[in-house]
Nucleic acid binder design. Structure first.
Lengths: 336, 336
DNA sequence: TTGTACGCGTTATCAG
DNA sequence: CTGATAACGCGTACAA
């Protein structure tokens, strides 16, 4: 009988039903050696009879070491770029027997901090973070801190394990590609300039133009478009510039901006060339040239770094970079 | 001083540093009344000094009721349909102060069972499940069971709270739409026929044809396409049928099938009409007519049901249905 | 206002 | 092979 009616059965309940001691039940559950077969069978029967299931929280409290969970703080699970990362991290976690706690910070530094704190209180074994901004020293501080790996963007005010994408090089490659096709008035439509990825991609864009001795194009830089709708507006505006200021090519600096640009361009007869940063589903069907990286590799690498730390790998923070390659599909190969 | 070097500081450590008792620290941390201001300040200073963070696992073990987590078992986070669900569930969870544990079952019943078991061992407060198949009585069994809500598909062998989409009605609407545009040879390309959603959508398809007294079209039913690639092959085959057997319209029964169909159709001069079940990003740009439901509403409704049970709502299992509407964008309005 | 004793469900220690 | 007992970090009941 349960100590209290309707409560989840405990090992004590199992022990009582099986007529053995607590420790014997523990042995059977954890598959430890040293239990006579008939005894083990009696315990197993009791477990099945009362529907016992071990309380992992209590177990991990007892031995202190692992809670069996991995924490992932991303920007937004609904964004395909991040959902692929989440998928890769989940696979890695599962391979190691960890469950994944996921939360979206939504570009809010305060919220990010809160989520990290909540995960630490829940004693995650390690943290994977797509940092928003602000000061990240809080992650490195405090006794008994947990391995933390930053994805997609570096932490601020502190050095730590991280996996980034070839942002500047990728953007520069896109610009060079457009230059090769005769474009000189190349516009760029990007997310908020405070974001690391935006800054790097803009830097790559500028470096590409500079290397080709193309003059200042700051009038064609449209940053600050957080949503597809904002990007759509920005592109529409670019298209209504007077002919000799109007860009003949556009670089969209992330997937949401690309989506907005495609909406702005839909149905137009004469379209500018377009290269998007980040690949997306159906880019092949739409014939959109993109700079493609591998979000799944990003997530998997970050997990690998974190697991390495869990396995005792010591040493200075590691910096990994995932390559970005240009995939020509038509939209980026239109003549100027 | 810490009891052990390098260990996470505990409330006992805080108490020692602040020169108060354990209970006083507990009061301060939980914001309970009845602590003199100067005492509270001393405790707060000690907490900051040693970097203490409460162990939520221990706390929830103590008071037994809530672990503060919600479990979500879906098919695949990387699929946009499910990542939107995950996003909605996460928002709902956060609003209630719960963290979300997510895991993908990948159409594997055994894995689903394992994941659910792992979540129960971790004492999630409630479970949201996109069931794969097999017997789901295990969810309803056992003492101290947890509220479980099924999403997108019903559980088998057992009745339980669930939120489904208007599958049959939606598919039927698509067929009627195509019939209105003069089509009679309407093919359907779908996922595995074992899946509930597939079965229902196929039933809706057949019902639509039957109501219009259109003869048997079983030769145009292509089920079993789990991936976009498989769907692409299936559509390509349909397009190479002899002219008088070849479909003039195609219904793709989920988002992956639609993607495959679009790839098969890309670059063809004469395309059949196409209606896809499930909306997707850029469907507007591609001009694809779809049957659209609201995955976010699906997730939010399921969370609401689960929270209702947590709040003590009793009574028989509740069955909710999210509507599906046809959105005409061109591909479904081509003449036969 | 503050402190003591105990218990949550499990694992670890050490005896029998 | 098996079992009594302590301990993990915290909250609750009750006393001081």
């Amino acid at each position: 009988m349960s100590s209290r009616a309707n409560a989840r059965p405990t090992m004590r309940d199992v022990a009582q039903v099986a007529g053995v001691s607590l420790k014997t039940v523990s042995r059977v559950i954890n598959g430890e050696a040293g239990v006579a077969d008939p005894t083990a069978a009696r315990v197993a029967r009791a477990i099945a009879a009362i529907g016992f299931q071990r309380n992992d929280l209590a177990a991990s409290l007892r031995h202190g070491r692992s809670s069996g969970t991995l924490g992932l703080v991303i920007e937004d699970v609904a964004n395909p770029f991040y959902s692929v990362i989440a998928q890769a991290v989940e696979s890695a976690a599962r391979a190691r027997g960890l469950m994944l706690i996921t939360a979206s910070a939504r570009e809010d530094p305060h919220r990010e901090h809160e989520l990290v704190a909540a995960m630490l209180r829940r004693r995650v074994d390690a943290l994977l973070i797509v940092p928003v901004g602000g000061d990240h020293r809080y992650v490195a501080q405090g006794a008994g801190r947990v391995p933390a790996v930053f994805l997609d963007r570096p932490p601020e005010q502190v050095d730590a394990d991280r996996v980034l994408i070839e942002n500047a090089a990728g953007a520069r490659r896109a610009v060079e590609h457009l230059l090769e096709h005769g474009h000189e008035r190349i516009a760029v439509v990007s997310d908020a300039p405070e974001l690391y990825t935006t800054r790097e991609r803009l830097a790559g864009y500028r470096a590409g133009l500079r290397a080709a001795s193309v003059g200042d194009r700051s009038a064609l830089v449209r940053a600050g478009n957080r949503t597809a709708v904002q990007a759509q507006v920005a592109v529409t505006e670019l298209l209504t510039l007077p002919p000799r200021e109007r860009p003949t090519a556009i670089l969209t600096a992330n997937n949401r901006n690309t989506v907005g640009a495609l909406r702005a361009l839909a149905g137009r007869r004469r379209r500018p060339s377009l290269v998007g940063f980040d690949d997306f589903e159906l880019a092949d069907v739409l014939g959109v040239t993109v700079v493609r990286s591998d979000p799944a590799l990003l997530g998997a690498s970050a997990a690998r770094l974190a697991f390495g730390r869990l396995d005792g790998e010591d040493g200075p923070p590691r910096h990994l970079e995932v390559p970005a390659e240009l995939v020509a599909r038509g939209s980026g190969e239109l003549a100027a």
